[in-house]
Design a protein around this nucleic acid. Structure first.
Length: 636
RNA sequence: GCCGAUGUAGCUCAGCAGGUAGAGCACUUCCAUGGUAAGGAAGGGGUCACCGGUUCAAGUCCGGUCAUCGGCUCCA
């Protein structure tokens, strides 16, 4: 009998007879491994436990506690779900059923429209399939055989998928169910422990809106019930933080039927905005930016010149003034360019860093609107940097530093992605290579790790995107840095060089927050409404114990006011328990309770929204403390 | 825009065998002057998203429109 050598992850080499399955190899290593094995990774490729090893190679047993193991299991659950759906609604055609970030989905084409009640029925049928514990087997077929199989089932989507495959095709069977699949899978349906179907939604076949809309069922699964429960709790937690809910409760903003996608900012939301804007201005002034404001509407002709008409007109709003066509700006750059062109620039003037908190309007499809996250009018914290080619790298580094500084203030971890030349790009490869290199060098110079998105850049230049992570683990693309060679060309921008000749400047577009509206939404969810004191719309709630203490509370308020501290006085004739409860619910950082004792001593009783009663403070001491907390932009 | 669900007082929701609306919170007034997460009482408030249809009668059934929610596509 022929022996083969298997190299294990720890470097050990074991010998087994050729034809040994991965499951058997695992069992020979340890009982625990045999029990927890989900599949194997042989020479880098995931294989079923039943896979027979016939050559030397590297073997790793993938277990239930590895991300790959979970992924394989979820994929099997998606098959079980498909099986259940086909049992309940015969004739259902299967499209695709992959795993995703936290679960899986399967797309179905069926007569019956699924409701959320149906999810329970499907779950029950799935439980049966799991209890029946079918063995899951892999079969490899020649393309013709596979075609014949799926033709016999009238599985039109699978047939379409096979078109893209030319080598041998693998299918998996469990009981009466068969599906086209690369695998691997769990060895049997009984290995599924904890799953839950989450929602039904429409989804286009192959993600193309010209194609048929299918029904997609989302679900998730874990090896342990406790992990599933934990995940479901996290979803609940995220729902509790929904900025639309907190925005209403804390009276920050609203969106009404009269203006879908056009948010109203209430006084408290406006405080947040203004604090953010002031912070933004301070940091930009420090870094040599000037600030401009360009008009909301400009002649339509400008947008033809900029290329927006060709690439963006479906997202733009138009109007007419005295028989002239105008467009509402969807971006700030053309205005910024006109600003650059207002005079002749010397090479000595560059770089010009021109910031603008620019209100843009974009027509977004009605189905995509979402609170403040996705709106039709929003304020970009934009800036355009006009520079000489030799300044590109230093300017990019400057922007990276600014973004890093700002995100750290809010306590957001982030990761970076670099997007390169797309197919329909303008400009020749040499310019793109130079620009992409500049971005890459800047990133490497800063020692930042980054992921490359090939072909994902803007049509006018490559870009760096910053994805910040909130405390629920979700990531949001906010900041972006884009190099642009196209617009300077189109608008014939120039500066006068040392040689007295005209030279073409390079342009850089960038945002730090992204959009103020979205950033406020993210902050709201991240902090669950408990904004750090420097951001809190109301920083101090004054709580007089009884009516007699009102004058003293007002005295204190006047003092706080002198120091620019944002306060409110709860003047209602209510017990302090109630006043405290409501201040707590409003997530106000500090409550100052004042009664007879405080009045006599000239003190305040300080309560913090998280730490509770902090005891009596002299007013000066409290002001000193909160002022420094605000100044340092401390996080709780 | 597309698929599905939803739309009742400021908020959260009940009402559904079709017989012209109800609770809690919030709001107003009064009583209570209270020391660290809801004191008591009384009162005001809704063309049941909008438009049309069926019916003697529609929040309740049907159709359309709008908006919201979950996704898809797109994106700051």
């Amino acid at each position: 009998m022929e022996l083969i050598k298997l190299t294990l992850p720890n470097g050990d080499i074991i010998e087994v007879t050729s034809g040994t399955t991965i499951a058997e190899a695992a069992a020979s290593l340890s009982g625990r491994l045999a029990k927890d094995a989900v599949c194997g990774r042989f020479n880098g490729e995931l294989k079923d436990l039943s896979y027979r090893l016939t050559e030397n190679g590297k073997l790793e047993i993938v277990t239930t506690d590895s991300p790959d193991g979970v992924d394989v299991m979820r994929h099997t659950v998606s098959h079980v779900m498909a099986q259940a759906v086909q049992r309940l609604w015969p004739g259902t055609k299967l499209a695709i059923g992959p795993t995703i970030q936290d679960g899986f989905y399967y797309d179905f084409d069926m007569e019956h429209t699924l409701s959320s009640d149906d999810l329970e029925k499907i779950e029950a049928e799935m439980a049966k399939i799991i209890a029946e514990d079918y063995e899951i087997t892999r079969e490899e077929l020649a393309p013709e055989a596979a075609r014949a199989l799926f033709e016999s089932q009238n599985a039109t989507y699978k047939l379409e998928l096979i078109e893209g495959l030319d080598e041998q095709i693998s299918v998996y069977r469990q009981g009466e169910f068969v599906d086209l699949c690369r695998g691997p899978h769990l060895p049997s349906t009984g290995r599924i422990k904890a799953f839950k179907l989450l929602s039904v939604a429409g989804a286009y076949w192959r993600g193309d809106s010209r194609n048929k809309m299918l029904q997609r069922v989302y679900g998730t699964a874990f090896f342990k019930k406790s992990q599933l429960d934990e995940y479901l709790k996290r979803l609940e937690e995220a729902a509790k933080r929904d900025h639309r809910k907190i925005g209403r409760e804390l009276d920050l903003f609203s969106i009404v039927d009269e203006g879908p996608g056009f948010p109203f900012f209430h006084p408290k939301g406006m405080v947040l905005r203004n604090v953010l804007e002031n912070f933004w201005r301070e940091e930009h002034i420090k870094r040599g930016y000037s600030e401009v404001k360009t008009p909301i509407m400009l002649r339509e002709e400008l947008w033809h010149r900029s290329g927006h008409w060709d690439h963006y007109k479906d997202n733009m709003y138009f109007s007419e003034i005295e028989n002239q066509r105008y467009a509402v700006k969807p971006m700030n750059c053309p205005g910024g360019i006109l600003m650059y062109q207002r005079k002749i620039h010397s090479y000595r003037d560059l770089p010009i860093r021109m910031g603008e908190l620019g209100l843009v309007h974009r027509h977004e499809l009605s189905g995509t609107l979402h609170g403040l996250m996705r709106v039709r009018s929003f304020t970009q914290d934009d800036a355009h940097i006009f520079m000489r080619p030799d300044q590109v790298e230093a300017e990019i580094i400057g922007v990276i530093d600014l973004i890093d500084y700002v995100y750290k203030i809010f306590g957001f971890p982030y990761h970076v992605e670099l997007s390169t030349k797309p197919k329909n790009a303008m400009g020749d490869d040499a310019i793109w290579d130079m620009a992409t290199d500049a971005l890459r060098k800047a990133l490497e110079n800063k020692g930042l790790e980054y992921k490359v998105n090939e072909g994902d850049g803007a049509f006018y230049g490559p870009k760096i995107d910053f994805h910040l992570q909130d405390c629920v683990g979700r990531t949001w693309q906010c900041a972006t840095i884009q190099l642009d060679f196209l617009l300077p060309e189109r608008f014939d921008l120039y500066y006068i060089g040392e040689d007295g000749q005209k030279h073409r400047p390079v342009m850089l577009h960038r945002v730090v927050f992204g959009a103020l509206e979205r950033f406020i939404a993210i902050l709201t969810e991240h902090f669950a409404g408990a904004f750090p004191t420097w951001l809190a719309p109301v920083q101090v709630m004054l709580i007089p114990v009884a009516e007699d203490h009102l004058p003293y509370a007002r005295e204190i308020a006047a003092k706080l006011s002198e120091f620019g501290i944002r306060y409110e006085i709860d003047e209602r004739n209510e017990k302090i328990g109630r006043k405290i409860r409501e201040a707590q619910l409003q997530q106000i950082p500090y409550m100052l309770v004042v009664g007879t004792n405080e009045m006599n001593e000239g003190t305040v009783a300080v309560r913090h929204r998280r730490q509770g009663d902090l005891g009596k403070f002299g007013l000066e001491r409290f002001i000193e403390q909160i002022t420094s907390e605000i100044k340092e932009k401390k996080l709780d």
